[in-house]
Computed example of a mutant assay.
Amino acid sequence: MKPYQSIPIQDCGEALISIPLERFSVEKPHPYQKLGASYGQKSPYYLRSRVIETLIEAQRNLQQQYLGWKIHIFDAYRPVAVQRFMVDYTFTFLLQEKGLNLEQLSPEQQENLWQQVYQIWAVPSDDLGTPPPHSTGAAVDITLMDDQGQLLDMGGEIDELSQRSHPDYYANQIDSKGKIYHQRRELLNHIMTQVGFLRHPGEWWHFSLGDQMWAWQSQRAMAYYGRVING
């Protein structure tokens, strides 16, 4: 159990609605759908209404500093079934990458692999008290696109299982590339936290507003977005 999962939830009942994609840059095709994940009647590009409003505000602030730049949305709403799909997919990917056979692994070796998976992926819990952040419609994975339509190199890929995923990985780099990566991550963090989002402590791309992680980070007594029940 993660520390933030001890935060109680009192869902405010706010609607999960479609993101106005014409306002943003969007990952197409969606990376998890491309792998075979099914979102049912929803799409990955849904969020709670206030979260969308705040995301629009963040982009407005970004464009005041950098004309023509956009927030690039990689992923947003994620039903628990999709969370489970991606957790299983990542575990299988690690097995293949390391050339391992599941049947030949000891329980300790399997546990070590699962711990690597859960460095990035939340447990796909069906417990309404411990929802995966993305299953609340209050978390979004993003990066930045410049006025030439190019994604900024952040020094690591979204969902990358490595130390480079930590937001401050490049904080003490002295080479020019490392400094640029850190500056870009800090810019992304600034435009999001300026409007109320908070960044995942271990992922430079993940931001949330109103869920358990956000409440825990901001020392609030309660989260107001829980799992979307029909998702």
Rank of each mutant, 00 (worst) to 15 (best):
G202S: 15
G155C: 05
E103G: 14
L151D: 04
E108Q: 12
A37E: 00
Q59V: 05
L102A: 13
A76K: 02
V195E: 02
Q163K: 13
K28F: 11
H206I: 10
Q5S: 09
P131I: 00
G156A: 10
Q217P: 08
Q96R: 14
Y77M: 04
M213D: 07
H30F: 06
Q173R: 14
I52A: 00
H166I: 11
K34I: 13
P29F: 07
L161Y: 05
T193A: 08
I142F: 02
S218A: 14
H200A: 06
K2C: 13
A76G: 03
S49G: 12
L209C: 06
P133F: 10
G68V: 01
I17G: 05
G129D: 13
A58D: 05
F74C: 11
T54P: 09
D175Q: 02
R185Q: 03
Q212G: 00
T136I: 04
G202E: 13
F24Q: 04
Y66C: 10
W205F: 12
E22Y: 13
T193R: 06
M213A: 09
Q10V: 15
F197K: 01
F93V: 15
D211E: 07
V82D: 03
K34E: 12
Q183H: 09
I52M: 05
G40I: 00
E57K: 14
K70F: 11
I191W: 00
G68A: 08
D153C: 02
A81E: 11
L21N: 10
E186C: 10
Y46T: 06
P79S: 05
T90N: 09
L113R: 00
R84K: 11
L152N: 01
Y77P: 06
A138E: 03
Q115R: 15
Q65K: 15
F197Y: 06
W214R: 06
G36P: 04
A15Y: 10
V26S: 04
A138V: 07
Y181F: 02
I229S: 15
L35K: 08
S43P: 01
D88I: 12
W216E: 08
S43A: 08
A122E: 12
P31M: 06
Y118T: 05
G178S: 01
K2V: 14
A81K: 09
K34P: 11
L144Q: 03
Y4Q: 04
E160C: 01
Q119M: 13
I229K: 15
V82F: 05
L187E: 08
Q5T: 09
S176V: 00
N61K: 15
G156D: 09
L113W: 03
G137V: 02
L94I: 09
P79Y: 00
A76Q: 01
Y39T: 03
R48S: 06
A15F: 09
M222D: 11
S176C: 09
A37Q: 01
L151F: 02
L187I: 05
I120C: 08
L95C: 05
A171P: 07
N189Y: 12
S208I: 07
L128N: 12
V228C: 05
P133S: 12
E14A: 03
E157D: 15
A58R: 03
P8Y: 02
P133T: 13
Q119L: 14
L198H: 11
P3Q: 02
Q194Y: 14
E27Y: 13
Y4L: 06
H30A: 09
F93G: 15
Q183P: 10
H206L: 11
P167W: 01
F91V: 07
A138Y: 02
K2I: 12
